[in-house]
């Protein structure tokens, strides 16, 4: 097989980016539109709902969500540090930071699980009110993105990291892309958090 696909590890001379980087940004652009539509929905539901809690904090657990925010922000830092470690050719430091990222994202999911189960316990389901419908759907979709990120990062930490030996540039590029996706997940949460919990 002699199919050669150029620019997978070095940037294209004209565009200045690799294929994967352009690809991940295109994917994120479409994600922006997905969450744009969901935020649109949130605004409409909020303005026309029959009853909407005056403050999200009346019904949702703000301290837990704040902790979750800190988790995600920290994981965003660790993943960008893991990329910087590869840039400094330090695989150990990369593994440490990537491992931390995954731990923190698991922490996020655990807290989300606690939040969800306590809501179910009190008999609050998506069908309870428009507020809960929006809350569960939006955080649920965001949670799915977190799960997707964890799977990717686990792969890159484990079997995927073998690529480092043969194609370090390409592997660093992969980590950058995984990082970009993860920052985006963080970014969505940064908006979801005040929109649902605080306002």
């Amino acid at each position: 097989m002699s199919v050669i696909i150029p620019y997978i590890d070095e940037p294209h001379p004209v565009t200045g980016v690799t294929n994967a980087k352009l690809g991940i940004w295109l994917f994120l652009a479409s994600e922006v539109m997905l969450f744009g539509a969901l935020f649109s929905t949130l605004i409409i539901m909020r303005t026309s709902a029959v009853d909407w809690p005056a403050h999200g904090s009346d019904v949702l657990n703000v301290p837990l969500a704040t902790l979750n925010t800190v988790f995600l922000i920290t994981s965003s830092v660790t993943i960008v540090l893991s990329w910087a470690a590869l840039k400094m050719k330090d695989l150990k430091k990369f593994k440490l930071n990537m491992g931390l990222t995954i731990l923190l994202s698991f922490g996020f999911l655990v807290i989300k699980y606690i939040e969800y189960t306590s809501k179910f316990h009190h008999g609050h389901f998506p069908s309870t009110s428009t507020f809960y419908a929006v809350y569960f759907t939006l955080t649920g979709l965001h949670g799915l993105h977190v799960v997707g990120g964890i799977i990717t990062n686990l792969y890159l930490l484990g079997p995927g990291s073998k690529m480092w030996e043969k194609e370090p540039e390409r592997f660093t590029g992969r980590i950058e892309c995984a990082g970009l996706y993860w920052h985006f997940v963080d970014l969505v949460w940064i908006f979801l958090f005040p929109a649902l919990y605080l306002l």
């Binding site: 479409s30 539109m33 997905l34 744009g36 539509a37 969901l38 649109s40 929905t41 759907t137």
Partner: peptide, 14 residues
């Protein structure tokens, strides 16, 4: 496709 389809995906899920 990239930028117009996601809102329908959101709407479909809703």
């Amino acid at each position: 496709l990239l930028l117009a389809f996601p809102p329908l995906e959101a709407a479909g899920i809703l």
